Amino acid sequence: MAAGGDHGSPDSYRSPLASRYASPEMCFVFSDRYKFRTWRQLWLWLAEAEQTLGLPITDEQIQEMKSNLENIDFKMAAEEEKRLRHDVMAHVHTFGHCCPKAAGIIHLGATSCYVGDNTDLIILRNALDLLLPKLARVISRLADFAKERASLPTLGFTHFQPAQLTTVGKRCCLWIQDLCMDLQNLKRVRDDLRFRGVKGTTGTQASFLQLFEGDDHKVEQLDKMVTEKAGFKRAFIITGQTYTRKVDIEVLSVLASLGASVHKICTDIRLLANLKEMEEPFEKQQIGSSAMPYKRNPMRSERCCSLARHLMTLVMDPLQTASVQWFERTLDDSANRRICLAEAFLTADTILNTLQNISEGLVVYPKVIERRIRQELPFMATENIIMAMVKAGGSRQDCHEKIRVLSQQAASVVKQEGGDNDLIERIQVDAYFSPIHSQLDHLLDPSSFTGRASQQVQRFLEEEVYPLLKPYESVMKVKAELCL
């Protein structure tokens, strides 16, 4: 049975990233139509530049190519590739079939990587351009969430054990800070992308030097003109047959890092959902379990974690691919890159769409948070109580021993009897502590235990987050809708 299948058929496997999760716009960027249309555009740009620099290419040939950029006979191309065992030459023939007058000058002087690699770089750039505003929107939604809850005390956790208090907004800023680093890295790697350009079979530009009869300047002009037509500021000066596969490492490393950030955020949300302090959106008709109707599973956060793990592992592909590119190139890269580049971007696209949807509907339960604080705060307040007693004339050592005994009794009630923490009640009825009984409410005010959390939130948002989001103001209103 021949390899390949009808990918629109229910009898043929289709990647869930495309069929179930990723956005239509990201799927289109990695589609065959987008790819092969870009090949034709690159052939047109090459012909236009070659004509401008004096090669015998007519206006009629150029116009014929322009008129057929979208006229792609995919069936013919597939048949040609089956016959020739070469995808680029299959599309040269297919393009030439609908451009008979231009057929002889299509791909003039070029090698397969002229269309293959340059198209990949265009796709990487455009895919990054799709991700950047999506990530900015996630940051914006979380920034709104953090600002609104900047002063809401909550129990902090280290080692997932109760620690000092923080605020809900401050905790959210930990998430935002990681995503801001990801946004900066995505922008950097996007701006650092260079075009492969017009380089020939081993990167020496020998074929173009021959076409222009040894004119170095025209060869350099050709490279520059096509690079500018493709919208790049610069091209690699040095290439082998391909652009260095280190570029793929750079791009997928940034995406993998984004995956790590999203995994951490969504894990926190899942843990908070278990504590009943916070939940992701839950639709009115949504079913959490087929057997347990009360369940409210954090399905979206779980999906993000599941896909983020996949995204983090994909960076190993370009690392290994770059390491086995012998001399000017081997074909070890080809099949692998067809999979890992598309999957990385479709996965990143999915987790950003999902995280935006989550961040637009996060639900906080202040009463649950308050109750958990009441359970733990008495123990945390013991040092403040000791200091207040010393100020009232008591002995630190005597007070410490009193607190120690009462704390152990209260802990026994919590752990052995399943009761509430009654340390404060014990202190309130103990005559030894009568000098500070009137101060206990103040000493137990949760806001006095959150330090500068709310001020940190305000400063972080104003100095770091809002300036970073400013270039994306025009796209901030787009909502994230999930079908599944």
Rank of each mutant, 00 (worst) to 15 (best):
V219I: 13
D129S: 14
L179G: 05
G5P: 08
V219Y: 00
A322T: 11
A348Y: 01
E283T: 13
Y21S: 00
H263Y: 05
A127W: 06
S334T: 13
S334V: 07
K147T: 11
Q51P: 01
I436P: 05
L258K: 03
Q210I: 09
S447H: 15
C266D: 01
E79T: 12
R329Q: 06
T52V: 12
R40F: 00
V247P: 00
L108D: 04
S434Q: 10
R374V: 06
P16H: 15
D349A: 11
C99L: 10
T158E: 01
N353G: 12
V457H: 06
C172Y: 11
I403G: 05
E220M: 12
Y13K: 09
P467Y: 08
H400Q: 04
V219C: 06
A256I: 06
P467T: 11
Y294T: 06
E220R: 09
L341E: 13
Q161C: 03
E48F: 00
E220C: 08
E60H: 12
K284R: 13
H437R: 11
A206R: 02
T330P: 04
I106H: 00
V465C: 12
C98K: 12
D129P: 02
I139W: 03
T202A: 10
V88T: 09
A335H: 00
R296A: 07
Q285L: 14
L124H: 08
F28I: 07
W175T: 04
L252V: 14
V414M: 10
V219F: 05
N71F: 13
P471M: 15
F449D: 06
I403S: 03
V405W: 15
V189R: 08
F36W: 15
T52G: 12
Q184K: 10
S301E: 02
W45R: 02
Y21E: 00
K479P: 15
K224L: 11
D129V: 08
V390N: 01
E425N: 15
I72K: 01
Y365S: 07
D333K: 00
Y294V: 04
Q416V: 08
I122Y: 13
V189D: 07
M89F: 09
L346T: 11
K187S: 12
I62H: 02
G116A: 13
L186H: 11
T239G: 00
H91Q: 15
E425I: 01
Q456V: 03
V390R: 03
T267Y: 04
S151P: 10
S289W: 00
C27P: 09
E228A: 12
R37G: 10
F327Y: 10
I269G: 02
F282Y: 12
T58A: 12
T350W: 04
K170R: 13
S140P: 01
I265C: 12
L142Q: 08
T267K: 04
S12C: 14
E360Y: 05
K229E: 05
